[in-house]
Amino acid sequence: MSVAAETVILRRSGSGVNLARFAVYALLIVAAAVFLAPLVSMVFTSLKSMDEIRAGNLLSPPGAVTLEAWATAWNSACISVSCAGLKGYFLNSIRMVVPAVLLSVGLGALNGYVLTKWRFRGDNLLFGAMMFGCFIPFQIVLIPMAFTLGKIGLAGTTAGLVLVHVVYGVCFTTLFFRNFYVAVPDELVKAARMDGAGFWQIFTRVLLPISWPIIVVSVIWQFTGIWNDFLFGASFAGGESQPITVALNNLVNTSTGVKLYNVDMAAAMITAAPTILIYLFLGRFFLRGLMAGAVKG
């Protein structure tokens, strides 16, 4: 039940209504314009030549649309010392994000299952300890993590980054799945036990098939979080394994002489594209799941 229906009833009837309605829409449209302007400017700028950028302003639409800046950003922009564009780093990010998401979501699902359906003494304390892991400032683990990765031979590798993202991602996925499974009736598990299903069968046959809403939420959360990460990438990745966010930052800061804003913007668009697309297609589910999980209290 939404509060919206009720607020309509709450509103005064009569001449005040139209004015109030008008004000609501006016405010929303202004706000939407302000929120959209940076994106619009980014797209426009990425499609312009530098000459046109100097001639126009932030929001002037491109006169002669050119994809040159995109091509440069992808293929030949200089990042640190090499001038091969973002494409290699884009692949690095994919190689990092796919296993990290799968592992952290899989572990989170199992943890949520155990913490809700196989309760044991101290499980709540354990969960609290894990939740705290979601919130620590990562600066506190940077130094020891750098040494540990070096010790186990994963320094500067994609595998090392995957490990780091799984360690700190599993706290969030556990939180998501635990809050989801808490709402699944225990009777379902009891019924499956009576039917002779064991620990794994209950999980794979009874719980997993109904978990897709929270799987979607966890995958989106982890994907955006890991794709967008900069701190771990900058701290632990070597030149060969750097993710795209680190490369973007280097690209923007490497440009010697004249700043090529069109290339910067195209590079930013390329970096943002996967998460924006995911958000556009799956955002609805994400919001729904997040609302159910985050604002319980």
């Binding site: 919206a4 229906a5 607020t7 309509v8 309605r21 609501v24 829409y25 929303l28 706000a31 939407a32 929120f35 959209l36 940076p38 994106l39 400017s41 980014m42 700028t45 955006t224 794709w227 967008n228 990460d229 900069f230 966010t245 973007l248 930052n249 923007v252 804003y261 910067d264 913007m265 590079a267 930013a268 970096t271 943002a272 998460t275 924006i276 995911i278 958000y279 556009l280 955002g283 609805r284 919001l287």
Partner: peptide
């Protein structure tokens, strides 16, 4: 306020959340 196109407005206000802080920084630097 039970507005029209609620989904569109929500999407517009929320999309920056999908961006990397690096992307946000680059945009605003521009």
């Amino acid at each position: 306020q039970r507005i029209r196109a609620e989904g569109a407005f929500r999407t517009i206000f929320l999309y920056p959340m999908a961006l990397s802080f690096i992307v946000t920084g680059v945009i605003w630097q521009w």
